[in-house]
């Protein structure tokens, strides 16, 4: 570097005396492509879906007459309403089981595993998460199917003489696979909040007379509540929109609301499909709004 170049620029405080307005505008330029992509191809279509859900379909053509007919239709068909409730139930149950399984695991990982091998073990949990989603669902066919591992095993042990269909094509199979799919997410989220916990607090609680279980419930759990809520929400939301899992392992007994949406769109009943989509989206927005405090990144008990 030549020294006079240095002295020439040293006089003006670098980057701070640039004209404010120009630099402010200049700094927003980066948003332009993102606004085009996410605005035009994400927010606008969502807006159109909102409109569609209040428009009418006449002879397979969408007419711009405002109506609540699509919603009325959805709630008038018993099978649809019961599918909606079933979807909620499946989502709640899968979430509870996935998080319930993830908590002891995250506890184990952050408390009993030496620091050096924690990261590899954590990566090991996430690896299946990044294997193709479709494949992870499909792989259960080889286990639960009529010729699957479970039936083969039962046959081999002599417990059954015929392959049983009960493992596949119903709600339990759907819940099992959903738990399988979303467990890593729960484990990852819970681990990252338990990991920051000061274990001396658990020792302090026991020192003050708490049993180990009391210490966990009164000291650990209240402090990681934001992490638990985050995990619950991020497992619950995608399950609401599940299509593939009920489609592959659910059969007719395991239908969820995602399958209804796909059916409507595949039969070009766009306005009715839009109404159901909006129900799901609306529910998600409400959830996110209610729990927005827990989802913000601020420290819970900050100094």
């Amino acid at each position: 570097m030549s020294s006079d170049a240095g002295t020439a620029t040293a006089a003006r405080a670098p980057g701070e005396r640039l004209p404010r307005l120009a630099s402010a505008l200049g700094s927003y330029v980066g948003f332009v492509p993102a606004v085009l992509l996410l605005g035009l191809c994400f927010l606008v279509p969502l807006g159109i879906v909102v409109c569609y859900s209040f428009w009418d379909t006449v002879d397979y053509a969408v007419v711009h007459d405002w109506t609540l007919g699509n919603y009325r239709y959805f709630f008038s068909v018993g099978a649809y309403v019961s599918t909606m409730w079933a979807t909620l139930w499946v989502a709640v149950l899968s979430t509870v089981i996935a998080i319930g399984l993830a908590f002891p695991f995250a506890y184990w990982l952050s408390r009993y595993v030496p620091r050096k091998i924690r990261t590899p073990l954590l990566v090991l949990v996430i690896v299946p998460f990044w294997a193709s989603y479709l494949l992870r669902v499909y792989s259960w066919l080889t286990i639960l199917g009529e010729k699957g591992v479970v039936n083969r095993f039962l046959h081999w042990t002599g417990l059954t003489s015929h392959p049983l269909g009960i493992f596949l094509y119903d709600r339990p199979a759907v819940i099992l696979v959903l738990v399988y799919l979303y467990f890593p997410f729960g484990a990852l989220t819970l681990y990252s909040s338990i990991e920051r916990f000061d274990w001396n607090q658990l020792r302090a609680a026991m020192d003050l007379g708490a049993s180990p279980l009391q210490a966990i419930l009164r000291i650990l759990v209240p402090q990681i509540r934001p992490g638990i809520i985050t995990a619950v929400i991020f497992v619950f939301i995608p399950i609401l929109g599940e299509y593939l899992t009920p489609q592959i392992v659910g059969g007719t007994g395991g239908v969820m609301i995602g399958n209804l949406i796909v059916n409507f769109f595949q039969e070009a009943e766009y306005t009715r499909g839009a109404a159901i989509s909006l129900l799901v989206a609306g529910f998600i927005v409400v959830l996110l709004f209610v729990f927005r405090k827990s989802l913000s990144t601020k420290e819970a008990y900050g100094a």
Binding site: F42, P45, Y52, G258, V262, I284
Partner: peptide, 13 residues
Amino acid sequence: MIPGLLIGVSLLV
């Protein structure tokens, strides 16, 4: 955050 299904159908529309 939102299910991919919703992205799919809204772009389809």
